[in-house]
């Protein structure tokens, strides 16, 4: 049975772009270990030569006609931005400090 370490869970929290408090990390480690142990039930299934099924309906490329059309106007697209200027979303500086 698999058990996740606190360090692993902390690493996943960075990948997931989530900041977890110490208490949350403790609880998350315990609960994720429990759930991951449960899903390992799948190990008993023989899946040799089984094609993975990503979608309920087998999907093929769906092409749209190459016709220009109106997209969402910029102002509408920016209308929910937590921070913006006239043209762009604003975020904290990415480079340097």
């Amino acid at each position: 049975m698999s058990s996740l370490t606190r360090e692993e869970v902390e690493k996943v929290s960075l990948l997931a772009r989530l900041r977890l408090s110490d208490d949350e990390l403790t609880k998350m480690t315990e609960q994720m270990s429990q759930i991951v142990s449960y899903v390992e039930l799948l190990n008993e299934v023989n899946t040799e030569d089984v094609e993975p099924m990503a979608h309920a309906v087998e999907q093929f490329n769906v092409f749209a006609e190459d016709e220009p059309h109106q997209s969402l106007p910029r102002d509408a697209a920016l209308s929910n931005a937590p921070k913006r200027d006239d043209e762009c979303f604003r975020v904290p500086a990415v480079l340097g400090d």
């Binding site: 899903v39 799948l42 190990n43 299934v45 899946t47 089984v50 094609e51 993975p52 099924m53 990503a54």
Partner: peptide
């Protein structure tokens, strides 16, 4: 693994 079992379920 889950995607493969998904096919078996189907």
């Amino acid at each position: 693994k889950a995607l493969k079992v998904r096919r078996l379920i189907r």
